[in-house]
Design a protein around this nucleic acid. Structure first.
Lengths: 217, 217
DNA sequence: ATTAAAATTTAGATTCGTCTAAATTTGCCT
DNA sequence: AGGCAAATTTAGACGAATCTAAATTTTAAT
């Protein structure tokens, strides 16, 4: 059984695998776990011994099938609890990440399954991220970043690539919430910032950094 | 900030203080934590250094005001989660203890308070135990054990002194659920077992051990 | 009041996850 | 190819929570 800490590594390796499909680097993990590369090395050796990752020294890690299965379980729990916190307890989407980080480590399958039923078997969490099924399947959602939309197009906001409270609160202030439909008016050639309009309201401007982290359908 | 483990000690010291008001013994703690007395000694020294317990070597421990405050916070979270698991997710009262043991360690006050509101600010958990207020007050419920009721009296079941699944499942099978009103028909002089009737149904017999652990109003 | 048994504490070791410092490997640049 | 810088791993250590074994204190019985 993977420890609390090991679970966090699995989840993180899964997340970073999207960017580094043929091996997540030690340094990338060290940065995101707020630990030193040396500590990561130790942990990777241990995870490899447990059969949860493929690890070749100096070459980075990938998840084994079992490791990926476990990572998806954790992500399932995380996202279901986020739905609970937002839908049932009334938290904002910018407030729930840290609490879900703790709740996700409670492994009882019966709890997870009943929670899912209680929530109406949701498919997506409050940030638009898909919730893995009990068996670990993940619908391949094919959204694209707002920064890639051509001027003139009108698209719905379907998700975000970042979950930091600061980023999400920034979106709140701009009125950019999940499901909201925006028209891309113009993309600045100077700084790639994007001018948007929501319904009939006056245009708002978002930085490239924001546009890169907002997913649209 | 007390660690996960320290929190479990505080909660346990609080619980055992009812039986050992002038000092919970090291062995009592060792037995209930499934650790050795030596480990308990170490932990008590540490808790004393943090100002959470009064500890005089060889004399047992009592909680300081701060220790009791923290213990009541943990108990509040535990019992609120038990209500959630039973009322919202449909678990039986015999199934929720272990899950609540994990959920209780999530400290976010905002979460606890919103959970309480979501549940309708319940006063009692599914076992009839009172839920401490956010400030740590506990209504002094004055119930007495079923074994002390005189033959002929009719009383409602208000709580239990034991939360083991085996005990609670035993009560389920006997039809003894919270709120159920029972008439004490006879108390055996031989083994102190109790003959009960519920409504018009034929009498059932419960052992002294059971009667000692059921609280009635 | 003695003293043996029980309870408790101390001493020293272990595992987990982390650290710093030093050694090693990789890979890039000329 | 050579060599340096960056990335990574190894070595050795530490704090937390636990253990066993040994020492100490308390308690209870004679």
């Amino acid at each position: 059984m993977a420890s609390f800490t090991e679970e966090n590594y699995l989840k993180l390796i899964y997340a970073l695998s999207a960017q580094q499909p043929d091996g997540v680097t030690t340094n990338a993990l060290a940065e995101r776990t707020n630990t030193r590369a040396a500590s990561v090395s130790d942990m990777l050796r241990k995870l490899a011994e447990k059969g949860l990752v493929h690890y070749r020294k100096y070459q980075g890690v990938t998840l084994t099938n079992e490791g990926r299965r476990q990572a998806l379980q954790i992500i399932r729990r995380h996202r279901l609890w986020e739905v609970f916190l937002v839908e049932k307890l009334g938290f904002g989407w910018d407030e729930v990440h840290d609490m879900a980080e703790e709740l996700e480590h409670i492994r009882a399958d019966e709890l997870t399954d009943r929670l899912s039923v209680f929530l109406g078997n949701p498919q997506f969490d409050p940030h638009g991220d898909p919730i893995p099924t009990p068996s670990g399947e993940l619908p391949p959602t094919r959204y694209h970043p707002l920064c890639d939309v051509a001027a003139g197009e009108t698209v719905p906001i379907m998700g975000v690539l970042q979950h930091s409270p600061a980023f999400l609160q920034h979106l709140n202030k701009a009125g950019l919430v999940l499901g909201c439909v925006v028209k891309v008016c113009e993309i600045s050639v100077f700084d790639r910032s994007v001018a948007l309009s929501i319904g009939d309201q006056p245009a708002i401007f978002v930085s490239y950094e924001v546009a890169r982290n907002v997913l649209v359908g």
